[in-house]
Amino acid sequence: MIELGQHAQFIIWAYVGVFAGLLALVSWTLLDARRTQRRLEALGDPRRDGKS
């Protein structure tokens, strides 16, 4: 890691915050997708759309 100067903590917190946010956003989207897919399968969707 390079030297970040006197404001290192702000830079690191900005990146940590943004990537935590991105991670939360991605995992929420994936979780939502999986949950809906599972619900769809539980209902026995008669019309399959492409996916096995």
Partner: peptide
């Protein structure tokens, strides 16, 4: 990243509507 998430969320939304119809 936005494009990917947007497409994924749109697919989920389509499925959710299908779930609602089936329910």
């Amino acid at each position: 990243l936005f494009a990917t998430l947007q497409l994924l969320a749109m697919h989920t939304e389509v499925k959710r509507r299908r779930v609602m119809t089936l329910e």
